[in-house]
């Protein structure tokens, strides 16, 4: 493992920002730390960079513990959310800063050549002599990235790299970052609260909540097999249905599910999670949750149907338009909601 965290803890006063986090990142991997604000992801990033000291635990880079190595010597590229460009320096001076302070200092020609190469990489040629105030948000972001890459970092860390940009630029830069990563093969960790961003850009996603890791996995694993109720709710839309768990069986209104993993529980409360596109509607008798269609929204090729069950709880269903038309249902009609895939977790609703 190239970058490794072992049982890292960090508190600020009474607030436990990170608790007992262990994580391993392979060389050349791009990992996303995904979570709501306050989940400890930025603190974790700062601990890796050496900008914060963990209260407990280890950080290893390339197999060596970096506890005694200050931020200045870690050779880690850090891109801040608001870029933190040097305002009194031109684009070229910003990018060349890491080389200029290096000992021994490279020749001016060597620095200029490297700066030119990096500006080419981030598509900012011809902007060498501009000052940061004369650049757009996306351009500043790319200058910050080029500046971090100039020191040939062992790990590249990005804090909310697209957080301050508008949607269009964001989308473009996202693809561009993925391509840049594939070209340079650099090991990278980025922080985001945007699930779409994490799923689209990262090789692996680490979902965090209240300072702990909830789940680590590929984007598919995270989305298709959420390990905890939190991950289920944080990624995409989901319906939550209260149920009872009794000796390996979960019972909902009109439905019984085998849950062998909870065979030790008897008559315990639970919550069933089901995504709208994993629910189907059927008419006539049979298994399924009895619901009434309340509202229908057409969204291009798909249809989102809002239904309510007997207890008054809203259930969202998503299906293709053709399928919906074949069902011949409408607002006010009754139907059965049948899940294709559903996960049950013990706990109060």
């Amino acid at each position: 493992m190239y970058l490794e965290l072992r049982n890292v803890d960090k508190a600020f006063g009474d607030f436990q920002a990170v608790s007992d986090v262990s994580l391993a990142v392979r060389e050349g991997e791009l990992v996303a730390l995904l979570g709501p604000s306050g989940s400890g992801k930025t603190t974790l990033l700062r601990i890796i960079a050496g900008l914060e000291r963990p209260d407990r635990g280890q950080v290893l880079i390339g197999g060596t513990d970096v506890a005694g190595i200050g931020v200045q010597y870690r050779q880690i590229g850090f891109v801040f959310q608001h870029y933190a460009l040097f305002r009194h320096m031109t684009v070229a001076q910003n990018v060349g800063f890491g080389l200029r302070v290096r000992k021994p200092r490279p020749s001016a020609a060597a620095i200029a050549a490297k700066v030119h190469e990096l500006l080419h990489l981030v598509q900012m040629e011809g902007m060498e002599h501009r000052y940061p105030t004369q650049l757009s948000g996306g351009q500043r972001q790319r200058v910050a990235l080029a500046r971090a890459l100039a020191i040939e970092p062992r790990v590249l860390l990005l804090d909310e790299p697209f957080g301050a940009l508008d949607a269009q630029v964001r989308k473009e830069l996202r693809r561009w970052l993925r391509r840049l990563h594939d070209e340079t093969g650099i090991t990278g960790v980025f922080v985001t609260h945007d699930q779409e961003e994490a799923l689209e850009v990262a090789d692996r996603v680490v979902v965090m909540n209240t300072g702990r890791i909830e789940q680590v996995g590929t984007p598919e694993e995270i989305y298709d097999e959420p390990a905890t109720p939190f991950v289920y709710q944080f990624l995409g839309n989901v319906n939550r249905l209260p149920c009872r768990i009794d000796r390996g069986q979960a019972t909902l209104a009109g439905l019984t599910l085998p849950v062998p993993e909870f065979s030790g529980l008897s008559d315990a409360p639970g919550i069933a999670f089901v995504r709208p596109h994993d629910l189907d509607l059927a008419v006539g008798d049979g298994d399924g949750i009895p619901v009434t269609v309340r509202h229908v929204v057409l969204m291009g090729p798909s249809v989102r149907i809002e239904t309510v069950d007997a207890a008054g709880q809203t259930l969202e269903v998503e299906m293709s338009r053709a399928h919906w038309n074949a069902l011949a249902l409408g607002p006010g009609t009754r139907a059965r909601a049948t899940p294709r895939q559903m996960r049950v977790f013990p706990g109060e609703a």
Binding site: V71, A84, R87, F97, R100, V101, R147
Partner: peptide
């Protein structure tokens, strides 16, 4: 901004270099 100093440090600048090249010109 403290971040400006942190970024300078992460790029390998010593405290002295950060002061002379980043803080003083500001």
């Amino acid at each position: 901004n403290a971040e400006v100093e942190e970024v300078a440090a992460s790029l390998g600048a010593s405290r002295r270099q950060t002061f002379l090249l980043v803080i003083l010109p500001t």
